[in-house]
Design a protein around this nucleic acid. Structure first.
Length: 469
RNA sequence: GGCGGCGUACCCAAGUGGUAAGGGAGAGGUCUGCAAAACCUUUAUGCAGCGGUUCGAAUCCGCUCGCCGCCUCCA
């Protein structure tokens, strides 16, 4: 049974959905003010694995992801470039979708844009006003934190001990209490705004997630996920405004992913260690290897990102790819040992599932996969893998890969005519025992990124893992 | 300053009370025309350091050192 570490309780809990067999999942998506960076994708990739493992466990998952397409940075950047918010965000949203695709991240069932849910947010804010937990100041609306007793329960912050005014409040808006946060911001000079029943303005950051999560998943839903930095204040504020309005628990399991670091530092533009997925693909890195790297480390542990790390991931992945190729090469009708293969598969399945059940321990799950790789290779060496066994092993790997999404993602290498000619020329050279010529051709192909392997059943070729620049 | 996390071999990385997974790299071997791939053997009496609890500690407790995060609309 799946256990998840719940930030709310700071402990691993058995996952018990509200409705048997169903899982409602809300993940905080990007703010589309720029290209998302690889650290952002670490989080989105982990959420993808969470979702896929829920599906693996048989849950019908309803996954909702927001796209924040209005906030201060967007307004500012769009203004600087002299384009409308909509035109500005459309470009980055599109880029985000392309990056998701490249990393093999499944699309959510529902993308929701903040700007398309203004009425839902307005109605939620009105509910809060009616309950007397929101107040107006200079045409903006704020949430009154002092009226919500549980404030701090997610972040585990005890506000009783914090002196008011101790922190510098950089928000340009006026609030009664430093902890209070904007639900609705009054329009400022020259900014886009919405004309609504609560007056003109634009939504605060937190309100969109509350409004959209409740619209699509209900007032109480199963899992809410995001990067660890969102615990406070974003998610804490979501809880406050949602529960103050409804009186029922907002979300039952809060699952947060750790950050990705570069040279032990958090990624930032000013430090120059800021990589987008595009940067990495331009450098020639394989998106499947990038995904493998992101997935192979436990989600609650920081990853220290490096190019070398991607290379290591690519090599590890190749070991799995090589087995898949060997299995595919097993001759039709070949006989093997059913019991040995079944035993190896069953052991791997147990290892995989118990690791993933334990708060998505992907490293341990991969260890079970690699144990199977070794055992399957041994059986192949011993001619114990027949057609049926090869199919069974591959089927298990596919099943596991329905979670990892990387074993079977390979870019196809198409041989051109010249390369094919060289390979067949080398075959003849070897038959003629012209080994010098054969080695020459092999060298020539390596320079073109193709590696040859001579096996009992003929020569296999594959793409070489040359280090990208 | 408050709160939280991390530190495991040459590199990456599991393991949270029962005697150190897994992937690379290195060394030796089997197979091969030679390679590659694959397989076998091998590489941490040791888990940042020092104490403590325990029959037993990488795991629990205390202190120290180093790194990271949150406490500001940053995944």
């Amino acid at each position: 049974m799946l256990h998840l570490y719940n930030t709310l309780s700071r402990s691993k809990e058995a996952f018990q959905p509200l409705k048997a067999g169903m899982a409602g999942l809300y993940t905080c998506g990007p703010t589309v003010y720029d290209y998302a960076h690889i650290g952002n994708f670490r989080t989105f990739t982990f959420q993808d694995v969470l979702k896929r493992y829920l599906q693996y466990c048989g849950y019908a998952v309803r996954h909702v992801m927001n796209i924040t397409d209005v906030d201060d940075r967007i307004i500012q950047n769009a203004r600087e470039r002299g384009v409308g918010i909509r035109d500005y965000t459309r470009h980055f949203a599109q880029a985000f979708f392309e990056d998701l695709e490249a990393l093999g991240i499944q699309k959510p069932d529902q993308f929701c844009y903040a700007t398309e849910h203004i009425p839902e947010m307005v109605s939620l804010i009105r509910r809060l006003e009616e309950k007397g937990v929101a107040y107006r100041q200079d045409d903006s609306v704020y949430f009154n934190v002092s009226r919500f007793p549980g404030y701090g329960k997610l972040a585990h912050i005890d506000f009783a001990g914090i002196k008011p005014g101790a922190r510098v409040d950089t928000d340009k808006y006026l609030k009664e209490d430093a902890r209070d946060f904007a639900l609705w911001k009054a329009p400022r000079e020259g900014e886009d705004f919405w004309e609504t029943e609560i007056g003109p303005g634009r939504p605060g950051w937190h309100i969109e997630c509350s409004a959209m999560a409740m619209k699509y998943l209900g007032e109480t839903f199963d899992i809410h996920s995001g990067g660890i930095d969102l615990v406070f204040p974003h998610h804490e504020n979501e809880i406050a405004q949602s529960e103050a309005a409804t009186g029922v628990p907002f979300c039952r399991y809060w699952v947060h992913g750790e950050h990705l670091l570069v040279n032990s530092e958090t990624m930032s533009k000013s430090k120059g260690n800021f990589y987008t997925l595009r940067d990495l693909l331009d450098r020639g890195f394989d998106p499947a290897a990038i995904r493998y790297l992101l997935v192979s480390v436990h989600y609650r542990k920081q990853i220290n990102f490096s190019f070398e790390g991607i290379q290591h991931a690519a090599v590890a992945l190749r070991r799995i790819h090589d087995l898949i190729d060997r299995l595919a090469a097993v001759r039709q009708g070949a006989a093997g040992s059913r019991s040995l293969a079944e035993e190896a598969i069953a052991k791997a399945r147990r290892g995989f599932e118990s690791a993933m059940d334990d708060d998505l321990n992907a490293s341990e799950a991969l260890a079970a996969i690699f144990d199977l790789v070794r055992e399957a290779n041994t059986l192949l060496d011993q001619d114990q893998v027949g057609e049926e066994q090869a199919r069974d092993i591959e089927a298990f790997l596919r099943r596991a890969d329905s979670v990892f999404g990387t074993f079977f993602r390979r870019s196809e290498l198409i041989l051109d005519e010249e390369v094919e000619k060289l390979i067949s020329e080398r075959r003849q050279a070897r038959l003629d025992r012209q080994f010098r010529r054969a080695d020459e051709i092999r060298e020539q192909l390596v320079r073109r990124g193709i590696v040859l392997e001579d096996t009992r059943d003929g020569t296999r070729w594959k793409r070489s893992l040359s280090a990208p620049a």
